[in-house]
Amino acid sequence: MGSVALRDIRKSYGAVEVLHGIDLDVADGEFVVLVGPSGCGKSTLLRSLAGLETISGGEISIDGSSIVHLHPKSRDIAMVFQNYALYPHMNVAKNMGFPLQMAKVSKSEIDEKVAKAAEILSLTQMLKRYPKQLSGGQRQRVAMGRAIVRDPKVFLFDEPLSNLDAALRVQMRTEIKGLHQRLGTTIVYVTHDQIEAMTMADKIVVMKDGHVEQIGAPLDLYDRPANRFVAGFIGSPAMNFMPAKVENGQAVLENGAVLAPAPEGLTEGQAFTAGVRPEHLMVADQGASANVTVVEPTGAELQFVVDLAGTPTLVSTRDRLHLRLGDTLHLEVEAGRLHAFDSETGVRLG
């Protein structure tokens, strides 16, 4: 396994720069997830690491050795593609054995390694089948098997679950996580799904418009987002934002309602954007009053939208409340769960 270091990575297509100097360290055996909306540059960064894109500037190294000028095949990196990229004319065994064949490994060793990987991935009964005879999940496992047999320094995953249905996605998420724990591999994984990122990663890199917005452990990003973008992107359902200001040490909404004690670091009278996650808003006897406008029971929890000082605000609770449209209720924010962001720059204030 290997550690990866990216330094000031820049990538331009003509005059358009799409990666603006990315720095990232991936420790040996770490599971790092690059997450961000479409077009943020996460796949370009992954493909640059793989050698499938030529970077315009910067340095990429694995275990301290530069790989920038190496052909993809010489980087000792395996990649699982979004569409699996299984070779349609080869059966499962041949697909999985292809990298070893390219490395001129003996047939007996190929058979042995393929059998071992197939066992890990529960593919032993499928070895003679062709990709078109497999389900989406099985294809994904074959793609992973093809990466495993090589025992490379780094595994790259480019949105590997996006073509699977919801149930299978959850199952494969668990399998990939389990595989990482079993093999102790260094993984760089790209997704636009923040739940995948939260559930799988040791470290999340949130990207936007070719910049890194924040790097950190999943719960760090959830608890202390560096800016409004990260706060809105991480967490499901998304964080609510509303204009507020500090009055007498309290965060006060535009209609004068008190939301919660103002976070530390703010000054008296300072205007800011208050951020509160739906699951951190509680129905209480007192607090900011709000009118219910939408009720959405999901079974495990109840989600409802209220009009809070003119801002549609989502609340999520596990309590089985009997709400009707137009009901008025009072909301409080769980202690220490109010986030403050600069109204102009979006940077975290407290």
Binding site: L52, F81, N83, M102
Partner: peptide, 27 residues
């Protein structure tokens, strides 16, 4: 033929010519 197949072959250790001969042409 998706270019991803060739990229995958190159990640698997094939040269461009090998990926063309082993992956693209059979398809």
């Amino acid at each position: 033929i998706p270019f991803e197949l060739e990229e995958s072959a190159m990640m698997d250790g094939a040269s461009r010519l090998q990926s063309m001969v082993r992956i693209v042409l059979p398809l």
